[in-house]
Design a protein around this nucleic acid. Structure first.
Lengths: 206, 206
DNA sequence: GACATTCCATACGCTAGAGTATGGAATCAC
DNA sequence: GTGATTCCATACTCTAGCGTATGGAATGTC
């Protein structure tokens, strides 16, 4: 058969040729939806309007794709976020911004949770460990900058990070029990009060 | 072949015949170790010193075993715990005891986390939702009994529960980053201060 | 102690999905 | 435009693990 939709447009868009990046991106989406287990080569191929043949030209095997997707995740959802937050001068504002980003509507939380679900996977484990420690260190420093004592800052960081992780886990376990709409913001306020040391540190003051 | 170890003891203990309960218990252990995916019939059979033949006599299929294991979990790790906590009169003591149980060394947290990992599984989803809402409701009431206003009590419950879930997720993601030994207790103290409304509510006062 | 019933082992069929082999289309180099 | 290179589709093989079929052991029953 000649390539589907190569001449007259079928449902699929007249696609260009694929590269490793396309596969890695699609893989990360799949992981976000159903974890490593949902990363099925022929499934991705269909989404991309291709077949296994393409995949096995770009990648040695499935593990190599997983690695590529995890690299991408580590970069986009941790390093780049941290980099962006460095730009915020005021420690309180930086922390507040971090909370807003973390609990916001981006798909990051879902990927996080999906990867936590595959924490036992030998490919996932080291990346997950690295990312978790990196984030915790950043959080610890953030609380330190706020004036919290060294030891206490670590506990604040742990509490904040587990609140974040737990929130997205809860959303999967019982979406109806998760605060939505105005309640979401109220809950975030509540969290900020509980998790930050001194004052209320209101979100978007004014 | 005659049954292994039926006369002279080999490595395996001279086992009695198996019942549904044995399979369900083994299944729950397997789930705790690796989630639903780790629940492999022939694997469990080997652990129990039996074969598939036995399993398919007691159960229609794998799904039926999963159901049985989930039932067991819901009963042991939620209903029975709640029942036990009802016995504690003082609201503050009850909440403190709950925290101690939750963050204690029982394997419950690991099973919780494993099932959260399979939240998308159609067999797991309804049980998980039920259990989560049940626990949240109990927590909400617990905070209410402590004198927290209705709406606020819900947020307290959410924060406490996500802290619990997040803690065990963190332990899987980066065990080395999780507080251990004396730090574990210090962190628990920190959490109690952050998550409970009024006073410090010390663990095991005195 | 023979028969029924309960329980289980062995040997098989079946499917999903990873990975391979190979020919051919697209694109580039000149 | 023709040869080389890059990219991809099709048609396989192979394995893990679910489920089934069937005979036989263990245990109860009278």
């Amino acid at each position: 058969m000649t390539r589907a939709g190569s001449r007259l447009g079928t449902a699929a868009p007249p696609r260009r040729r694929l590269g490793r990046g396309d596969w890695a991106a699609a893989a990360l989406v799949a992981i976000g939806e159903g974890g490593i287990g949902a990363l099925v080569i022929e499934g991705l191929a269909e989404r991309l309007g291709a077949t296994k043949g393409s995949f096995y030209w770009h990648f040695k095997d499935r593990d190599e794709l997983i690695d590529a997707a995890l690299d991408r995740w580590e970069q986009e959802e941790t390093e780049e976020v941290i980099e962006r937050l460095r730009a915020v001068e005021d420690p309180a504002a930086r922390l507040r911004r971090l909370f807003e980003l973390a609990f916001g509507d981006h798909p990051g939380g879902d990927i996080d949770v999906a990867l936590l679900a595959d924490a036992a996977n030998p490919l996932v484990a080291p990346v997950l460990r690295r990312v978790t420690e990196r984030r915790l260190d950043f959080l610890t420093t953030a609380f330190s900058d706020l004036g919290v004592a060294e030891e206490s800052a670590r506990y604040h960081a742990l509490a904040a990070y587990t609140a974040y992780v737990g929130y997205f886990e809860l959303r999967r376990a019982a979406p109806s029990a998760t605060p939505t709409g105005p309640h979401a913001r109220e809950y975030l306020d509540h969290l900020l009060r509980a998790l930050t040391p001194a004052g209320p540190l209101p979100v978007r003051p004014g």
